[in-house]
């Protein structure tokens, strides 16, 4: 994996990593922007979570600030699981995953293509949800540090989730298996992201925030490297 295969006539037989990765991103985004199956499901679910918390918790200004990070990350975690499941189910439904795996490409390129598409879909949902949250809870969420934390956290969530979704999608219980597998694995991301988000909203000093940010960066690096090495084995029969 990762090495460029050369045929007997000296020509590379493996399509370049970037070209194959962007082909997967193009395919996923074209299909999704046409059907909007995944985006609409994630968006409706996220809206419901935000609305339910808004009506269920009658909070004053200080309490709102305290629960905001939790509500945002509950929304991201559950909507993300929904999206990750659907994103791999699309590949499995018509056995399209076999079509992908038959191509002479580095399989890690397929994985990173799926990661970029999933990341894009989650960020689109967040771009719509955060202003709505801001209005409903009368809370300014446009704090650069908070937005950076959300992006870092979503990267971690998607990197590990895409790998686990490609495992769970091959089982009969794929709909229930992914959350069971993924939530414990993503716990460090969720905890660190909730903590960093809350600190940013409370205007705490960076000394207090850095450990959580470092944990998020470390998690992302470790899971990206692990997924790069493991994806081929995960999808191999």
């Amino acid at each position: 994996m990762g090495l460029k295969a050369i045929s007997r006539d000296g020509q590379p037989v493996q399509t370049s990593f970037l070209r194959s990765m962007w082909a997967v991103v193009w395919k996923d985004t074209t299909a999704e922007f046409r059907s909007r199956e995944l985006l609409s499901a994630m968006l409706v679910f996220s809206l419901l979570v935000v609305l339910i918390f808004n009506f269920a918790l009658e909070l004053n200004a200080r309490e709102r600030q305290e629960v905001t990070a939790g509500v945002i990350w509950v929304t991201i975690a559950f909507a993300g699981t929904l999206g990750l499941n659907r994103s791999m189910a699309v590949e499995k439904d018509g056995n399209c995953l076999d079509g992908l795996l038959l191509a002479p490409v580095d399989r890690a390129a397929i994985y990173f293509g799926k990661v970029i598409s999933n990341l894009l879909f989650m960020l689109i949902v967040m771009v719509i949800i955060l202003p709505i949250y801001s209005i409903l809870y009368n809370q300014n969420l446009f704090v650069p540090g908070l937005l950076g934390t959300i992006v870092l956290g979503i990267i971690g969530y998607v990197v590990s989730g895409t790998l686990l979704a490609s495992m769970s999608v091959q089982t009969r219980t794929r709909d229930v298996l992914l959350p069971i597998l993924h939530l414990p694995v993503a716990l460090p991301v969720v905890i660190a992201a909730v903590r960093a988000s809350a600190y940013f909203l409370q205007g705490q000093p960076m000394d207090l925030i850095w450990p959580s940010i470092n944990l998020l960066i470390g998690y992302n690096v470790i899971f990206t490297a692990a997924a790069y090495m493991l994806f081929d084995f995960v999808v191999q029969e």
Partner: peptide, 25 residues
């Protein structure tokens, strides 16, 4: 070629072949 077409239903025929053509360079 199997009994399942291994094609994406939400892409056009041309888009499907474009995608696989890119993967196969």
């Amino acid at each position: 070629l199997s009994h399942q077409p291994l094609l994406y239903p939400n892409l056009s025929g041309e888009e499907n072949l474009t995608f696989f053509g890119r993967l196969y360079n």
